[in-house]
Design a protein around this nucleic acid. Structure first.
Lengths: 335, 335
DNA sequence: CGTAATGCGGAAAGCGTTTTCCCAAACGAG
DNA sequence: CTCGTTTGGGAAAACGCTTTCCGCATTACG
């Protein structure tokens, strides 16, 4: 292995000088700098991560904590992940994968051994057992999602309440008066998942506010279940002319289910999805964007900021954006 | 931070003794061992990963290289990942996430800085540009997938050729004489992806061998495309009574498409999927299992073996297993 | 022109482990 | 009863880097 001493010898300088060239923590004369850089290139030198971590007490690694729970839509989750990883790399950090089964125990281990400088925690629930632990840990952490109390934390999330409301407003403005809501699988609600519950709350409140009748149902990730839920919605609310869908895995079956029940999109029933924009684009659905990349990126940026000692707000909520597409059209004459 | 010296002092022994208790590399008297263990627990000691890596030149971390390419089915990919991570943890290793965009460059960086002891590379293509690099790296690697030449490597894969053939044999034994094949999205074939091409090859060869007419088509991941492909298959082969599907994302729409074209499963058209068993179970499809967990686990076990200096076979192929379900039934009287 | 400040370089002291190397005591074989 | 051999313990030398401290030239300033 080629060490910093080898480089120093080759360049005719002291090891400390090489270190300063590398870290940029001190000004170095242009001549020395290029000389050192050249030696580094020639010898193919890579600083030893462990030695670096030991000496600087900085690992340049962040933990990505992702609980792979049933009901989460993995393609969406991976958008978060790639955005977070890419952002980390831009700040010269690597990413250690910590999965759920390791639990709070795993967090403690990774934190205690100084393997990582901070934590990016995904899929946070309303009352998450990892939250108290995160609060008292030496390393900073950023959560994607929003636990009940955000004091002392740094959280990033889409404003799901506003997102639910936005769907209602859009449909109400188009003249719809009976709106259905097709939600996540029921396990997700049982588990006290913030984003699911907040979206529903926002949806319900907005409907009340606008004097609109609404019904909501969960649905599982298969055609039969989607068909069943849509049928139930139509049965309990025969005049339903619009549907808000907050379930990526179900999206592919919604149009088919409606058609099977004799309703066409958008003429008989308008559909608004809450999902990543690409998905909505592909299916030509009006949607409130779930900005997964943006959330992942922002979360990592906030984490890096905290690692550098900058203070951060406890809660960053992204405002929802709606993109109109073919699945909703004006409907002026409805009661 | 509490160090090994603190523990040693507290237990009244030398630091080296504590180290030996921890690593088990030397016999320690039961008394000292329990005494040391107790001090460790009391002080809440965690060895510093960086220091450890430096002194032992072992990071106890493996890199998980996953290129997130279009067309790969993420839920399946994540099965590999969780199995691999779980297995790694059982061997007291952590997992560093390296994504595709970092490319060969990223591999070199991670390898050079001694951040990881080995590499688990997923989604390997027939002629993968990372393969030559992996061959010449100091750290061992295990590939999930199968490049054209496996010499000097350690690869784990399902025997996709046999899997394709197994589907044909099953259907032929049931009396089918015209079989269609619904493949992955076309980008996957264009990219020279081993598993997709091998499955098709095995399928085609088996059909020839059994004197069976076969047609194959790729399909994209949306209902319209699946419907279109199925329609084309039926048009070019009106007597088609069976369909082999090698595309997890399309599975959900196959039955619907067939029904839309006036065919019922399994009475008019039998369906065999190549996918994880849980998926097939959920949809009640006869399937050749894609043992994602098993592959992830085995790959990591092989990597650990190599890290411990054990030699490994260049290629481990898992035999395909077929599970009969409701989507195929005997069809004795067909021509 | 004297003195303080600054720029840039080197020597060396850690950082927290593991791993030699050395040693004493206990043990077993001849 | 001796002479290896094993067994369990400690002292101290790495491991490869960062960072403090020190020092010599320059430059800036009154």
């Amino acid at each position: 292995m080629v060490t910093i001493a080898d480089v120093a010898r080759h360049a005719g300088v002291a090891p400390s000088t090489v270190s300063y060239v590398l870290t940029g923590k001190r000004s170095i004369s242009p001549q020395t700098r290029t000389k050192v850089r050249e030696s580094i290139r020639l010898l193919g030198y890579h600083p030893h991560a462990g030695a670096r971590a030991l000496a600087s007490s900085r690992a340049n690694v962040v933990a990505l904590v992702l609980p792979l729970r049933p009901g989460v839509h993995l393609p969406v989750l991976m958008r978060f992940v790639t955005a977070a990883v890419t952002t980390a790399r831009r700040h010269d950090m690597d990413v250690l994968l910590v999965t759920a089964d390791q639990g709070a125990q795993g967090l403690r281990r990774v934190a205690g051994s100084a393997q990582v400088d901070g934590f990016l925690v995904m899929d946070v629930e309303l009352d998450d057992d990892r939250v108290p632990l995160l609060r008292q840990m030496a390393q900073p952490s950023v959560l994607i999602g929003r636990p009940a109390a955000v004091k002392g934390l740094t959280c990033v999330d889409l404003d799901f309440e506003a997102a639910g409301a936005r769907c209602v407003d859009h449909l109400a403005d188009l003249g719809h008066r009976y709106i259905g809501f097709l939600g996540a699988p029921s396990v997700v609600y049982q588990r006290n998942t913030g984003y699911a519950q907040r979206t529903m709350a926002g949806f319900g409140a907005a409907a009340m506010r606008r004097g609109i009748a609404s019904t909501a149902l969960p649905t599982e990730d298969d055609y039969e279940s989607v068909l069943g839920s849509v049928r139930s919605l139509l049965r309990s609310q025969p005049g339903m002319t619009a549907l808000v869908v907050h379930n990526e895995a179900a999206l592919g079956w919604v149009a088919g289910s409606l058609r099977a029940l004799g309703r066409r999109v958008p003429d008989d029933v308008a559909v608004v999805a809450i999902c990543p924009d690409e998905l909505a684009e592909q299916m030509q659905l009006t949607s409130v964007q779930l900005p997964a990349e943006e959330l992942g990126r922002q979360a990592m940026e906030l984490l890096v900021a905290r690692l550098n000692g900058h203070p951060t707000a406890p809660l960053t909520l992204l405002p929802p954006k709606l993109s109109g597409r073919a699945s909703t059209t004006p409907r002026l004459r409805r009661a």
